[in-house]
Design a protein around this nucleic acid. Structure first.
Lengths: 205, 205
DNA sequence: ATGAAAGTTGAGTCAATGTTCATGTTGATT
DNA sequence: AATCAACATGAACATTGACTCAACTTTCAT
């Protein structure tokens, strides 16, 4: 699980006591729920504070605005997704195995946390800079892994960055279809089929 | 170009004269601009009518609500994208060539119409049913093409639907990165690189 | 114990904007 | 020229919800 509620709050508003930190954590968890269920614009601050069990004014003790909170959440979730995948992939014998494991981990994360997934994607229309940051960071790491594997001779030659974008796009859509819309296969089944496509290619041999 | 302004309006509100049809067309074009630049929630009806050069009340002569207009637009654009790609692909010698041509056509469409692209993606959070309809339709057609090519022996065996989702996801993200965010390669270059990945695979040979 | 800092409260303010509607205009038909 | 349905107008209405603030409570160092 990701630990909401540490780097999230801006300096002047950061809580100074244990009670304050508890409240911030409650607010962030409530916000993840509210934003996940209703989307950014439908979500109401009163909805968040009601879920958290605090008064409206308390929200503004710790956050400057609805959007500031949203940005903080997206950053936390971005970290959480990448950490989850990175942990799953650590120790994979080679890159093709890592691809399969990583994709399965991603889909199972999406399935367990559809809210987080929706929040990150909605950021494209609410806080585009944070959204770009998320994928640029993701692509950067992914591209390095591909480059390293390429240099070790584990995969064929090819453009690392473009491959990273292509593979991430694939994952995001497979996550939407097989993670959220209609989970009619296990994450492992989906990953096996997708990685077969990516490693063997469409060309007939 | 897509022709906005025909199936878009609901029956009782459809214009009956040439003047009315002109007004509807102006409203739809203005709406595409306004939604594209400001997003659904930031977009204001007064912004749309101002761009169209008509009074606020005129909007409600032809549309029941802001969301009804948005849905009509998304359907029009969905048709426009698919038509554009289908036309480009018609007459390709084989499936792998069709993939390359289709992807290049998609990216160049996105580059010429970033608004349309943004509007369809935002539909995920404004009118999810229309969004699903868009991709389900897209995947359906794509999957059929893959199945036919597979049966003709042009590509290797594999699951058509999952492949369609994977390839579409890839295209959407490549469209975002190389079509909108940073168009530092031509659509043809991007398509060549991506289709090389998809047809040859990552495995070293 | 006590004072001050941190935290909490929620009614009230305020701006934005989607939608309505009564009135006015246009243009084709007779 | 008269008629009328279609179309256009924009001020007014109504709702919504983010944000403020002055008063109150809790915590804790001295």
């Amino acid at each position: 699980m990701n630990d909401l509620g540490q780097a999230a709050v801006s300096a002047e508003k950061a809580p100074r006591t244990e009670r304050g930190r508890r409240t911030v954590r409650k607010l962030l968890e409530a916000a993840a729920q509210e934003f996940g269920e209703r989307g950014f614009h439908e979500a109401a601050i009163t909805g968040i504070t009601a879920r958290a069990g605090v008064a409206l004014g308390t929200f503004y003790t710790y956050f400057g605005s609805k959007e500031e909170l949203f940005r903080a959440l997206v950053r936390d979730m971005s970290d959480a997704v990448r950490a989850h995948v990175a942990e799953a992939v650590a120790g994979a014998p080679d890159r093709l195995a890592a691809e399969r494991i990583g994709l399965a981990a991603f889909i199972s994360f999406v399935r367990r946390h559809p809210e987080l997934y929706r929040i990150i994607e909605e950021a494209q229309f609410v806080a585009e800079d944070v959204y770009r940051e998320h994928y640029l960071t993701f692509v950067d790491g992914y591209g390095r892994n591909l480059a390293a594997a390429r240099e070790r001779g584990e995969i064929s030659d090819g453009p690392d960055e473009l491959r990273a974008w292509a593979l991430i796009g694939m994952s995001v859509f497979l996550g939407m279809r097989y993670g959220i819309w209609k989970p009619d296969h296990t994450p492992e089944q989906v990953a096996d089929m997708a990685i077969d496509l990516v490693s063997e290619g469409l060309r007939k041999r």
